[in-house]
Write a protein that binds this DNA or RNA. Structure first.
Lengths: 320, 320
DNA sequence: CTGAAAGCGCTAACAC
DNA sequence: GTGTTAGCGCTTTCAG
């Protein structure tokens, strides 16, 4: 009835009745039931956001970007965490889709077949984020991790380093880290160079792991003159370790990480890194959903935004 | 009809029909509509989680605790972020309640009157987390930040420090930081000691800010022999700064932070801190909601769990 | 064990 | 401008 109209600021209602309704609503402590509303209107202002983890700052930062633009709209994000587990991803996705959200933002391009079918069948905007190396179901915004790996390899070679070590996570399911690694070794291979040593970790404090791994690797392969870390946190650990040991960085050994986390600003020396454009990705993805959910005929589709991460050479990647 | 029964594994359905239904559901790619289900059953398996921020690791860690226990139940968390803004908190809360969740987990004990009324009127379990210094609406799990501040002050005094500086965030709305500060100065006052200097920051990289603030303060008040940081990140920045400057820690100056973040493990020296029991808080809060949402008559109510944070004295808070 | 029927609290379309 | 009506897609209750 009329009440519904005023509560949603729709069309013709006289000021008098409007006031009366608002008054009543307030005194009764009335909170509309969105479930009923959604069912009736076939519209749910929720955006499903599916990410692998909350345990490092990267996804929370993406969330912040998403929040920023969704705040300007009636849309609300609902997040689900998969722990890098395809099974869980499938389940979380199913749960979310059963709420008939206005769109979904999901990390990565790799999903189980079932997940892909659900996404395709959902008939809502789907934005796959963080990665552009592969085929998207619908829209896609991110960076090319393969290209990022290549770019860093080139910069390192150009700076004159030759004996390069790689340190990363032991995560077969972190496809983005894997792609960076592939791009990285690819460029090295072209120059006839192979990774001199490599080390992988899982669990624990990344900073501490970075220290440990660096120690182990330097002991095992003393001729190393560069270490490429698959994320800034272990890179920072490595940097702190080197400084502790009185190792000249980058004189004796150069270092680089990946992500461009804010944390690096406070380190004794600025670690070379590459900005993964996390907030920007969140913002762009949310924008796509917001734009499309406004339209009627789902005009858009298949948007593809590839951001280009830039190297922040810091002080740990200098020409020798 | 029957279909509904098999999809929910309810009561008496013959294996034959069950199979037939499952079969049909699969081939049709049927995903049940939870909105309709929720409306009909008056049951929504969502738990609203309202937190101030995602920008440091503390709340993501609480989330992980919540996820852990909710994963074992049909309940699903939905998070809302307030940016420490009571206005936003009110709005976010309103939005969430309009989905009629099974419970709400909300950070802090300080809310606007409107927010409090909504929470009281909602008729669902409400767990206020992180803080126990004040009056809870319903259940409450956290630590006493006032007590935490007092405890740290005692430890510092006992270790023989006299000229103490405080460094924290410029956040009038971070009640927990404020309470820690109050507890801290209270104990000092009892011993006839006043904070020698203080400094507050906002925005930017906490690690970098920690460095800057430490530098500024040491210049301004050279007689300081201890610095108490309101979080570990700025504490870590301070520690790195001191080490850079060749300042003997804790010989010349002692340091302590707050939170017990994992990051500290990788630092050149272990910063003294106090574990805020974040994951544990998340777990306990989720458990309360889970337990109560199982019962019919909302048996429980008013649970109050106060965890006691322990000092991890690290290497930067040693008897002089 | 299975079907039919009556809502859940709203929105949308249509009268008044 | 305002009231009325018919569903939205399920769950629930009650008959068969």
């Amino acid at each position: 009835m009329t009440v519904s109209r005023v509560l949603r600021n729709r069309g013709d209602v006289s000021q008098a009745t409007r006031d009366r309704v608002l008054e009543a609503a307030k005194t009764l402590g009335y909170v509309p039931n969105k479930i009923a509303g959604a069912l009736a209107s076939q519209r749910v202002n929720l955006v499903a956001v599916i990410i692998p983890s909350l345990s490092n700052m990267v996804f929370p930062e993406v969330m912040m970007g998403i929040n920023e633009v969704l705040d300007e709209t009636p849309l609300q994000p609902v997040v689900g965490v998969t722990n890098y587990d395809p099974q869980r991803e499938e389940k979380v996705l199913y749960e979310m889709l059963s709420w008939r959200p206005s769109g979904v933002i999901i990390a990565g391009l790799e999903h189980s077949d079932a997940a892909k079918s659900m996404l395709k069948a959902a008939g809502i905007p789907v934005v796959e984020i963080m990665d552009t190396d592969g085929e998207a179901i619908d829209a896609c915004v991110g960076i090319s991790h393969r290209r990022a790996g290549r770019k860093m390899a080139k910069a390192i070679l150009k700076a004159g380093y030759k004996n390069i070590g790689f340190l990363g996570t032991k995560m077969p399911l972190d496809h983005r880290a894997r792609k960076r690694f592939e791009g990285f070794t690819e460029v090295l291979a072209k120059e006839g160079i192979e990774i001199s040593d490599r080390e992988f970790y899982e669990g624990g404090s990344a900073l501490a792991k970075g220290r440990e791994m660096t120690e182990v690797m330097l002991e095992r392969t003393p001729e190393l003159d560069f270490m490429y870390y698959s994320n800034d946190m272990i890179g920072a650990g490595g940097l702190l370790y080197c400084l502790d040991q009185g190792i000249n960085v980058p004189g004796q050994i150069g270092l680089a990480g990946f992500n461009g986390v804010e944390l690096l600003d406070g380190l004794p020396r600025q670690l070379a890194t590459m900005d993964a454009c996390r907030k920007e990705i969140g913002r762009a993805a949310a924008q796509i959903i917001a734009d499309r959910s406004g339209e009627s005929g789902d005009t858009g589709g298949g948007e593809r935004i590839e951001l280009s991460p830039k190297i922040a050479a810091g002080q740990t990647l200098k020409r020798r």
